[in-house]
Design a protein around this nucleic acid. Structure first.
Lengths: 202, 202
DNA sequence: ATATTATGACCGAACAGTCAGTCAAGGCAG
DNA sequence: CTGCCTTGACTGACTGTTCGGTCATAATAT
């Protein structure tokens, strides 16, 4: 077999493994050898693809976001009805974490922590950008749902902020105690409440 | 004999210092010597009061929660009007972190992370309890605000969950990027939206 | 009052364990 | 053989924890 190694593919493999271990044990408690073992390779090999543990951490964040992003846009792509689209957005997050990706969830906390503590680093700037993008995406989706012109654009953006907040906040509560409420249903309800508020507004 | 010292007071001093350092650097990156330095004592002295770094972490969580709790109940105590009371609840969180305690904020992420990764540990069980208590507190406050009997109790508890979620979610976004929106105003708005929804419900 | 002793709070050097990152040796395709 | 990949034993820096010793002060004796 002509051994042309696909560096990108191999990196992706390592990142998948890293995310899995990071999620389970936390970044600080994860050894490079843990990642190597999870990826089924030797410890030294890791350093053929990444300069440092921190680089793995940063890139895994990017990798994770891209993955979630692609899942979301894939879903929204097929839907045309605005309301359906909005609900699909909010339910995608819930489905991601109710499904195979549940184990990946807690890595979000490490990303948040690192970003908050080091606002100047690329990872933080990136996260800020992601939030802003998502507020804007949701703003558009919300605007498509309410067919009123008089609602101020500012209100809609604030509503978008609140929606993101609700979804993430519910996620944290639910991950800690899944018996507290039905995540999917409650997320849907939160979305509907916001829409209703926007519609009734004058 | 040396002066008899107040063990509890000294522990509190160390915990205050620990929380400060934990917040700034993250628990994993905090050395015992950092805490000692911040508390103005020697490294060895720490171990006169705590068995291990982990014990400091766990106790600082408890300490932090009690502090926030006492601030909130102190505020609510003076208010009788239900709506005022509810708004005071939500604004207290914002004020805590907009004021002197801003630096303490990011320690929440370490608490969350530890709890989520180790659901059986005391710290996690405690956090679950805290959330449940707060959902119930908010449920009562919300019920006092809407003077309708037909609203189902379940709806109110779900609304309480969403309100907590909104406040925490907004907090994360705001801490990352304080120019995104006005925290206090947006938190207030989220509270009002939920009340409105509950009132109009049949 | 003053000297002597007992106490335990306090400290930080030393220890022991851990782990990120290195590198010399081995493997394997062409 | 040549060149590239892979590897895990190794190293050195780092840090949680221990522990023997110091010292200020309280208690007691004179």
């Amino acid at each position: 077999m002509p051994k042309k190694i696909d560096k990108e593919e191999k990196k992706a493999n390592i990142l998948e493994a890293a995310i899995k271990v990071f999620s389970k044990k936390g970044v600080a408690n994860t050894k490079i050898s843990d990642i190597a073992e999870a990826a089924g390779i030797g410890k030294g090999t890791i350093y053929e693809y990444f300069r440092s543990k921190d680089e793995i951490f940063v890139e895994s964040f990017q990798f994770f976001l891209e993955k979630v992003d692609s899942i979301i846009s894939q879903r929204l792509y097929r839907i045309s009805d605005p309301m359906e689209k909005l609900l699909a957005y909010s339910s995608t997050w819930t489905e991601i974490f109710e499904g195979d990706y549940l184990e990946y969830a807690s890595i979000l906390l490490d990303f948040w922590a690192k970003s908050i503590r080091n606002k100047k680093e690329a990872i933080a700037l990136n996260l800020v950008k992601i939030y802003d993008e998502n507020r804007n995406i949701l703003k558009s989706l919300l605007e498509d749902c309410i067919t009123k012109e008089k609602t101020s654009s500012l209100d809609v953006k604030i509503a978008a902020s609140i929606l993101i907040a609700s979804l993430e906040g519910l996620f944290i509560q639910w991950i800690l105690d899944r018996s507290a409420f039905d995540f999917k249903e409650t997320a849907k309800l939160a979305t509907e409440i916001l829409i209703e508020w926007l519609k009734k507004r004058d």
